[in-house]
């Protein structure tokens, strides 16, 4: 039969010679292979101390953004909820009252904003849909939980720490990806 490639090899079925029957060379060969692995560099990453770098396009947990003065960006326009293919986002809008200007950037804000992380497929369409740069996907995983309710993330789970009050936590939460933007 004509071979399509030259990669296949016929199985060698010749009777073993005395040298091969002693198995000692084969054993020595095997031992040398295992010993060479003994000195190889280990690919293990000691997780809590070391972490693998996230790729620049990684899409993890959502973050609701604030501006430099610590005001929430979200105006509860609902575009993210419409864009969401898994229908994981729900929100309730409310109007900004007098004296709340330091909390919300626009006149309208999201009084309730929930993402069901069990439904979410982390596609990032909400991020693309948002006109206010209010939501983006960070570089963390959704942690495990004992209850399904625990996976419904409310506003206080999603909101980024205030850059004025807690600048360090804010920097940590922003992550590499947002900083590049």
């Amino acid at each position: 039969m004509q071979m399509l490639t030259n990669r296949s090899k016929a199985v060698d079925r010749h009777p073993m010679t005395v040298w091969e029957k002693m198995y000692l060379p084969a054993i020595a060969k095997g031992m040398s292979i295992t010993l060479s692995h003994f000195f190889k560099k280990k690919p293990t990453i000691n997780y809590p101390e070391e972490t693998r770098p996230f790729s620049p396009v990684f899409r993890g947990l959502h973050i609701l953004n604030r501006d430099e003065e610590g005001r929430e960006n979200c105006t509860a326009c609902g575009l993210c909820a419409v864009a969401c293919p898994a229908e994981a986002i729900t929100m309730e809008a409310a109007e900004r009252k007098e004296g709340e200007e330091h909390l919300y950037r626009e006149e309208k804000y999201a009084a309730k904003y929930e993402i069901n992380m069990l439904r979410c497929i982390f596609c990032g369409l909400c991020e693309e849909a948002c006109p206010k740069d209010a939501i983006y996907l960070s570089e963390t995983f959704a942690p495990s939980n004992y209850k399904r309710e625990g996976f419904i993330y409310g506003k206080n789970d999603l909101l980024i720490p205030d850059p004025k009050k807690e600048p360090e936590l804010y920097q940590k939460a922003v992550g590499e990806r947002a900083r590049k933007k």
Partner: peptide, 13 residues
């Protein structure tokens, strides 16, 4: 430890 090293792991640490 030896098992780990021979299998390209670190073993108990």
């Amino acid at each position: 430890k030896v098992a780990g090293f021979m299998q390209d792991r670190l073993g108990p640490n």
